[in-house]
Design a protein around this nucleic acid. Structure first.
Lengths: 298, 298
DNA sequence: CCGAACGATAGAAATTTTCAATCGTTGTAT
DNA sequence: ATACAACGATTGAAAATTTCTATCGTTCGG
């Protein structure tokens, strides 16, 4: 029955019988039959049947909740028993928002020092994707904003405060300033993340409330590396979290100027499934996050 | 895999492969193979192997914990989805200590009024049996002492306070008293529960600390009905909780005399698995218990 | 030393699961 | 209006698994 619950979770993830089947490594008829068996066992329809996948019924949604929990627990069991025997091993799957990606190294590095047999996979994802992937057991933990948009059902560990700086060449407009206002920044052509990123929405909001007009970035990307590479040429400007700018390294061609009025602050943190107990791999990451947060707060 | 986890739970309950298999409705080789499959999946021995069942390994105990949780959740899922469709139906399995059995009617009666399609099974059990049966998913809820001996991992809802009375014939020794002391009670030949019952251990303790000598009841039984039937003849005496004596009905042949010095009080309550969310059947019982407790406290 | 109890094992039978192939429906583009 | 493509359901055969009966080997108690 556990595998059928996996099918249900995959179906919710893919919203498509065929793709869900593929992602489970079975054929579509097998997955269809599995869902039907679940429905027979529970005596209710779980999926709204039409010519194609429409959505789950109310009972389907509840079952999905249970499925995530039960499947998550059964994975946690395996992981925990394995950890008892061989210490922490296996794959730790993390997703982080682009502006926090650089910071992930501060978590993974001490983690690996403590648990050398753990392998990491880190994805760059939007904050919304992080939450759904966490829900669907596709990742073990995420790094995202804790205080801006709603988080949903997760457990959060605050890591650090994100503050914003204008990155620009010293000889560009505003390049010689000690600090600039959002109103001033609104006048500069910027390289920003795409609007599906929460960071972009935050900056949009700040620029809008300072400058009035809608934001028209000169260049958009979902990659911080791309944005940074442009700024690095000395011909472009961007707004980035202070900590990220430091990590990427300030060269002679770039200045990082604090943006004030308002001095915006947002909290970034680790999010993990609201499961108790966590998988050992995730629990160790939470411990690492708490250590890191304590270190950063000093 | 879920069925294998059931096997593991049954094995922990029965401490015997053959009986565990029978209780799961499979043959002994099937259960043996199931356990072995779990062991292979997890890569550890779960059961200490000797010529017979000795016990679980440390990993086995942890796995057992997970098994209880996962199996419990999967049952809760079925129950909840069924409840969405058909309202509360099915079997509610309760165990209560003998002195609280009469009180169970106060829970089941309003419960049944609200949910007529639920059937009840109520067992008389010792407080210790209640805790292990709860752990092993053999019952959905228990009624037992909350404040005397350790409870283990359960959620508790206090129901009422148990106070002790001497039940005896009016013309017997102490039969004319308004109240009696434990020291005096220690002199009377008593009908008491067997020592595996916590109520007996409580009374033993009270008598011992008042009278000094060890308790030598004239008659022991694990059945309150048997004790009460003896008292009812007018030729025997017993110590019973006040509320129970009231429920059983005081006749001309019996007086119930409060026992003081000390005026001992113990809390009886409902215990349910520490699972969140509870099964709908158990949750409704908890709600009923809270209502009842509120009513009794008035 | 024997016998009973217990759990493991082997092999056959039954059941379940899975898949390839195909069907029927629906929505869309022509 | 018609043809087509996408999607999920269905079917029937093959494969995998589970389960059972029968039996074995060990251990413990008398």
């Amino acid at each position: 029955m556990l595998d059928k619950l996996e099918y249900l979770i995959a179906l919710s993830r893919e919203q498509h019988f065929g793709r869900a089947a593929e992602s489970c490594g079975v054929t579509q008829p097998t997955l269809s039959a599995g869902i039907k068996q679940l429905e027979e066992m529970l005596g209710v329809l779980l999926v709204q049947r039409g010519s194609r996948f429409i959505g789950f019924t109310a009972e389907g949604e509840r079952t999905l909740d249970w499925a995530r929990r039960i499947v998550g627990d059964s994975r946690a069991m395996r992981e925990e028993i394995n950890a008892l025997r061989h210490g922490l091993t296996g794959q730790l799957r993390i997703a982080a928002i682009p502006t926090a990606l650089a910071m992930v190294a501060q978590l993974t590095t001490p983690y690996r020092a403590r648990h050398p047999d753990v392998r990491f996979t880190v994805w760059s994802r939007t904050s919304i994707e992080i939450l759904t992937q966490l829900e669907n057991l596709e990742i073990d933990a995420g790094v995202t904003y804790l205080d801006n948009e709603p988080l949903g059902r997760v457990n959060a560990v605050p890591l650090y405060q994100e503050r914003y700086q204008l990155l620009t060449a010293p000889d560009a407009a505003l390049g010689d300033r000690k600090r600039v206002t959002w109103k001033e920044v609104a006048q500069v052509p910027l390289c920003l993340l795409t609007p599906d990123m929460q960071n972009r929405r935050i900056i949009d909001g700040l620029l809008r409330s300072a400058g009035g007009a809608a934001v028209q970035p000169t260049l958009e990307s979902d990659s911080m590396i791309l944005l940074f590479a442009h700024v690095r040429t000395g011909r472009w400007a961007s707004v980035m979290p202070a900590r990220l700018a430091e990590t990427l390294g300030l060269t002679a061609t770039i200045r990082a100027i604090p943006i004030v009025e308002p001095e915006a602050v947002h909290t970034i943190g680790l999010v993990v499934p609201p499961r108790e107990p966590l998988t050992p791999l995730a629990a160790a990451l939470v411990a690492e996050a708490k250590r890191l947060a304590a270190g950063l707060a000093e």
